[in-house]
């Protein structure tokens, strides 16, 4: 019996950070969040061909990675590198903003990892997604 209680306690303790974020509002909207989402939305059209070709993959940590630049014509690689940097910059700002807007700046890491999972789930078939062990697989 005591083992069971201990296990329940452990599970509860482990799930606390996630539970905290779950209580928070990931869909919260502030002008900063609207602006960031707008910028990311307009950039998506440019990034989509790179997701499709596997040049850019969805990383576990809520960012995107230029995983195979050889899949991009040479003259476009600089642009692609810039797009990935700008996207990751906006994503980092988005996670920070959502945590802040919830009144808990310390939730940033959990917001990031929750979004990492969400981006991976939303990835289209054929896109490359990184698993928990850091390996890439095609969805």
């Amino acid at each position: 019996m005591s083992i069971l209680i201990r296990r329940i306690a452990t599970v509860l303790a482990l799930s606390l950070p996630l539970a905290a974020v779950a209580q928070g509002n990931l869909e919260i909207n502030t002008p900063a969040i609207t602006s960031l989402k707008g910028a990311m939305q307009s950039r998506h059209g440019q990034l989509a061909p790179y997701y499709a070709s596997g040049a850019v993959g969805i990383a576990r940590d809520g960012s995107i990675v230029l995983r195979d630049a050889n899949a991009i014509p040479l003259a476009q690689r600089q642009t692609a590198t810039g797009l990935v940097a700008a996207e990751n910059n906006d994503r980092a700002a988005l996670y920070r903003e959502i945590a802040r807007a919830n009144g808990h700046p310390e939730w940033e890491a959990e917001v990031r990892s929750t979004f990492g999972q969400r981006w991976a789930d939303k990835a289209q078939p054929g896109w490359f997604v990184q698993n928990a062990a850091g390996q890439w697989s095609q969805k």
Binding site: R67, D68, A69, N70, A71, I72, L74, R77
Partner: peptide, 11 residues
């Protein structure tokens, strides 16, 4: 030439 990641390449 190209390295495995494509970060350094020439054509």
């Amino acid at each position: 030439f190209a390295d495995a990641a494509g970060a350094h390449a020439g054509e």
